[in-house]
Design a protein around this nucleic acid. Sequence first.
RNA 1: GCGGGGUUAGCUCAGUGGUAGAGCGUUUCCUUUACACGGAAAGGGCCGGGGGUUCGAAUCCCUCACCCCGUACCA
Length: 879
Amino acid sequence: MKEELAKRYEPATFEQRIYQMWEKGGYFTPEADPEKPKFSIVIPPPNVTGRLHIGHALVNTLQDIIVRWKRMSGFNTLWLPGTDHAGIATQMIVERKLNEQGISRFELGREKFLERVWQWKEQHSSEIKDQLTRLGASADWTRERFTLDEGLSRAVRYVFVKLYEDGLIYRDLAMVNWCPRCQTAISDIEVEFRERNAKLYHIEYAVEGTDQKLTVATTRPETMLGDTAVAVHPDDPRYKDLIGKNAILPIVDRRIPIIGDAILVDPEFGTGVVKVTPAHDKNDYETGMRHNLPQIQVIAEDGRMSAAAGPRFENLDRFEARKLVIELLRESQQLAKIDDYTHSVGVHGKCDTDIEPMISRQWFVKIEPLARPAIEAVRSGAVQIIPQTWESTYFNWMENIHDWTISRQLWWGHRIPAFHCANGHTTVTMDEPQTCPQCGAPVQQETDVLDTWFSSGLWPFSTLGWQGAGADDAPDYRTFYPTDTLITGFDILFFWVARMIMFGLRFTGKAPFSQVFLNGLVRDEQGQKMSKTKGNVIDPLDVVQEVGADALRFTLAISASGRDIPLGKSRIQGYSAFVNKIWNASRFALMHIDVELKDAGPIDRDELKTVERWILSRLNAATADVNRYLSAFRFDEAANTLYHFFWGEFCDWYIEMVKPVLLGKHGHDDDRRTAKRVLLEVLDRSLRLLHPFMPFVTEEIWQKLGGVEPAVIIAPYPIAEEVLEDPEAERLMKAVQSMITTVRNARAERGFTPKDRFKLYVKSNQPREANFFREYGYLLVELARLTEVVVEAEPPAGTQQDVIEGFSIAIEFPVKEISPEQIERTKREIEKTENEIASTEARLANEQFVQNAPAHVVDGARTRLAELKARLEKLQQNQ
RNA sequence: GCGGGGUUAGCUCAGUGGUAGAGCGUUUCCUUUACACGGAAAGGGCCGGGGGUUCGAAUCCCUCACCCCGUACCA
C-alpha cells in the first residue's frame, strides 16, 4: 500500500470530498432502461418549511441503507428525491415573516405573495438538498422533483378532472372543520384533539307560557346566540310533554322550539336537555337537517362574532364573547351553575387554533369507492405493511373513512381547475376556458387550492413523468413504476400512504409500491417527544459536525426496530466509538497489507490455517445474517450483526491472533503472505457490508485498498458462500477462546497481573485435536500470556483444573496463596454445576421429556450432563 | 367506547416453546508499537401480578394492574 490512513479519524476532513466523488461519478443516476432489473424508491418529500430534523435524518438514513444495499446488489437503483410545497405550513411561515415586517398578504395580493413564497421555496429546497447530502443520501438529484412542478401539476389537474367526471369529486355545502386563524377548511385528519380542563356551564331556558325552566349544559355558551332549538329525548318522561312548546333563548329572547330527537339526546347524560346550534356543531347541524331548523351563523370566518350575534357581540372574538355571555347570564340569573370539566377540544394541528365547525361550500372526494380497492390491496398482500401490526390500524381507519375535504381557502397550492360563471354554472376541465360552455358568460377560475396531500398522493408516479392517460409512456415511468419500497413515518400512514395506494390503484391500475416500512418516532432518552419548547431537540447537522454522519447513521440504524427510538447524545457517542474502531483496525491492517485488491488473486483454501478458516466462516455467517435482516427491514439486527462481527470477532480475536504471524514472531513467510491475503479479504468484505450503514468512512478506507471497482459504493455487496462455512474451525476456535478466557479469569481472580505467566496443560481424547493444540498452542501462549502449552501430559498436583468445551485443562500457578474470593468462587461454581446436573438429570429421568422432546434436545441434554459431570470432577480437585 | 402496542439487568432495548442477551452505566486490573473513542475481567435479572396449556413458557392462551399510541364521542 502506498497510502496510509490518517492517524486520527476525522470525518469532517473527507465526508464532503467523498460525496462529491460519488456525485461526479454519476453513481446515483440510473439509466431509464426497462430491461434491467430495477429497484426504485421515492423519498417522502420534506416540506419546504425549514430545516430538517432528526426524524428526517432517520427516515432518509433508512432509505439510503436500502438504496445502497440494492445498488451494490446489482439493481438499477433509483432513489428519487424532492420536496413538498406543504400548502398551509409554508403559507403560514411566509405570512408570519411578512407580518414581522408589518405586511399582510392581502396588501400584497395573490400574485405578489406567491412570488415571495416561491423565493422561500427556492432557498429552502436547496438547503434541504444540502442537508441530505451531508447525511450521505445517495439520491438522484438529476431527477429532483417538487409538488408544484409543471409536470406534477398537470398530473394533479388530470386526476381532479377525471375524478370529477367519474362523479367522485363533488362540491357541496356542508359542515366542515374551519380554522379561524388560517381561514380555511381542513380535513378530518388534520384536526388533533387536545385534552383540556374547561368549564361546563349550566344555563336555564324558560319554557314559554309556563314557569318551567329547562337547564342545558354547554362548554361553549357563546354558541347559544345561534341556538334554534332545544332538544330532549322523545321518550323522556321528564320532558316529553314539553315537545312542541317553545323555549325562550336567554339574552337574545328568541322563541325556539322544543324538539324531541332520539339520536342527539341521551337522557342519561347530564340534564337530558341539549341546546341545538345547527351552524356551529356537527351533531346539531345534522339535528337541524332532520328538523328543518334555521341555521344562524353567529361566528364569522375569522373567529369573531357576526352581525347575526347581535350588536353587543358583533366583532367580538369568540372567546371574549363567551365571557360576555356568561356575564349577562349571571346578571339575569339564568346561569344555574358552573362545573369543572375535562374534555378534548379539536385544534388545527398546524397552528393549534381551536377548530370552529362551520357550514361552508367545499370540494370533496367521495372516498369509499377509492378505499375499497386500497383495503383489498393490503389484504391480498399486494402491498405489505411492515411492521405488520400497522395493518390493523390501516384497516380500522380505511373501513370507517369519511369523504375527504380537499379544497383549501389558501393561495399557495394547486388551484382547483373549476370555472364559475355569473349564472351559477361550474365547468371542470383541463383547458383554460374564457367563457361558460353552457351560457357563454365570462368565467372565473375557482380561487381555492387543493389539499397538499392531494398532490403528494400522486407522488410515486407523477414524479416519474406520469401525467394522465395517454401520457404514461414516460421512460422513467416505464422503467421504475411501480416503485418497490416506501419508507416513511407511521404518523403519515393515513395522510399519505393510504392516499397513494388509493390514487395509484385508481389511475395506474397498480399499487404504487409493494412494501411499506413504517419507522418509529425519534424521542429523547426519556422517551419524550422532541420539541423546541422542551429544549431536548437534537439537530442532525450538529451531530454530523461533532461525530460525523456515519456515527449518526449507524446509531439510527441500530436503534430502528420499527418502534419509537429513544435517542441521546451518549448513545451516539457510543457508536461513534465504533466508527473510530473501524478506522483504527483498518489502519492496522493497511500497515501490513502490501498488495492491492485488484492484484491479490483468489484465495487458495488449501493453504488456510484454522484461524483463517474460522474468521472467514464467521464473516460468512455475518454476511448471511445482514442480507437476511435487510430483506426484512431489521436495520437494528443487521447493524448489530456487523457491530459484533467487526468489533467482537474481527478486532478482539482475529487481529490479535494474526499479530504473531504478521509481526514475524510465528510461522514462515508463506504463512505471513496467506495471513495478509486473508486480512485484506476480511477487511474488504467488512467494508462492503458496512457501506450502506456508514458510507463515508468505508469509502475513505476502501479507496486505499486498490479494488477493481472505482468505489465501494458500486462494489458488489457480499453474499454468503457455502464454501466458506467451516463448523470444525468454529468449534476448535471457540474452545481456544474459552480456554484463553478461563486463564485470564483465573489470573485476575488469583490476584496475578497480566505480566505473570503460567504453564497450561491441555488434554483431549482425539489425536487429531492433540495435533491442533500442538500447532496452535502459540495462540494460547500469546493471548492468554502463558509460558508454554503442554499437550497430552498429566498435569502435576496442585494445578487448577477445569473442562472447557470438552477439553481438560490445568493451569499451573506459581505458588501463591489462593484468595478467599477464589475459594468462594470455586465453591459457587461447584454449586452451580451441581444444581445444573441435578436439574438435567431430573429432566432426563422424566419419561415424558425423553419421549416427547425432539431428539436433538434430548441428545443435547445428555451431552451436557456428561460435560457437567466431567467438569464437576475437575472443579472438586481445585478445593 | 373501539383498535393497537408496551411492562426483561441501574438506564435504553433485543429476544415468539428447549440451560436468560446487547449497548450504555458501575467495579477491578492493564498505557502490550491500530485504537484509552482502547484492552482484559467482574458484578448485576423469581423476564409486571395471578391462573392455564405443555415433558418444558420471557415466549402460546385467559385475567388483573399500570403506561403509551391511534381513533370515535363528549350537552
